[in-house]
């Protein structure tokens, strides 16, 4: 039997201040299956974090008809403690206890789950080893680099051996080495059966980790599917990026005259999409190699296609 870990139906969230009401999530539904990695993608302000917080009980969803959230069959509004007990949460900002050492941070956290000291110590040793932090066990938080802090926050989220790991932009601001290391660890956790819910605006991250994902924009779901299907069904296979519009005048072939090409202009660049590699290749014939880039399309292209290239007012 297939296990459904998270079921979100018509979730909505409105933030009310004295002056105005801002609707951050405008009715989103999705299902996360057990032992898979599910991605919530979208630009800043799309409502990803709000949605995530509603799932683990840090935010209360709008009370509207036909709206429900279930995590392991528990409702975050009523069964906050059950859900928190089964989940590990990695928030966007590193909210570690600055006054405690690495090990103390984990020990205090274990206490919040009621884990006894012997088991906690054993788990902490394992986790520090898993996240390659053993050398830093007695370091103060201030001595840690950004990447170490992130690894510690993830270790902290794993202290209760969660069945569901929720990560909010886990690799934002980290260098490539740390990102790849974390991706590896997350894949390893998934293999061990942990379900992962992750928000990100890095398409490569989603591609590396997610089995299924949704792209959100301005509180709504724009697109959903498995990672490979999304690329196959929503975008042409290849993209030709031409920098500097002026270069177009050098082209032998006018792209507008070709049928199987979709053209997009943004700022000073031209993007030509096509399923036919040859067509695009022909266009580049008399371009300087420095002025163009012909490549496979990726999630980022879908992302930009669905959410637009321009910044919106909350980005």
């Amino acid at each position: 039997m297939e296990q459904i870990v998270i079921k979100v139906e018509n979730a909505q969230k409105t933030y009310r201040s004295q002056k105005e009401a801002l609707k951050a999530v405008k009715g989103i539904s999705f299902i996360v299956r057990g032992s898979t990695c599910f991605g919530l993608l979208g630009p800043n302000g799309a409502g990803k974090t709000s949605l995530m917080k509603m799932i683990y009980g840090a935010s209360i969803r709008d009370n509207v008809p036909n709206s429900s959230i279930s995590v392991f069959g528990f409702d975050p509004v009523k069964d906050e403690l059950q859900i928190k007990y089964l989940c590990g949460v990695v928030p966007q900002t590193d909210n570690l206890d600055q006054e405690l050492t690495v090990k103390e941070n984990l020990l205090i956290y274990a206490k919040l789950y009621g884990i006894n000291k012997t088991i906690a110590n054993k788990t902490i040793t394992d986790l520090l080893d898993f996240m390659e932090l053993t050398d830093k066990a007695n370091a103060n938080i201030k001595e840690l680099s950004g990447g170490m802090k992130r690894r510690l926050v993830i270790s902290r989220a794993l202290i209760n051996k969660p069945k569901l790991l929720i990560l909010d932009e886990p690799t934002t601001g980290l260098d490539p080495q740390v990102r790849h290391m974390l991706w590896n660890k997350l894949r390893q956790l998934k293999k061990e059966g942990i379900t992962i819910l992750i928000t990100t605006h890095y398409m490569d991250e989603a591609f590396q980790l997610c089995d299924e994902l949704i792209i959100m924009d301005q509180g709504k779901k724009v697109i959903e599917g498995t990672t490979t299907d999304l690329i196959k069904n929503n975008i042409e296979a290849y993209v030709l990026e031409i920098r500097e519009k002026n270069n177009v005048t050098q082209l032998k072939i006018n792209p507008d005259s070709l049928k199987d090409i979709r053209k997009e202009i943004f700022l000073n660049n031209i993007y030509l999409y096509s399923d036919n590699y040859k067509t695009l290749k022909n266009i580049t014939d008399n371009l300087d190699s420095i002025n163009y880039h012909l490549r496979h399309s990726n999630l980022e292209d879908i992302f930009l296609k669905t959410t637009g290239r321009y910044l919106n007012e909350i980005q």
Binding site: K84, P91, N95, L112, R156
Partner: peptide, 8 residues
């Protein structure tokens, strides 16, 4: 924020 993500 950190503490509240645990089971309290």
């Amino acid at each position: 924020d950190g503490m509240l993500a645990a089971s309290i």
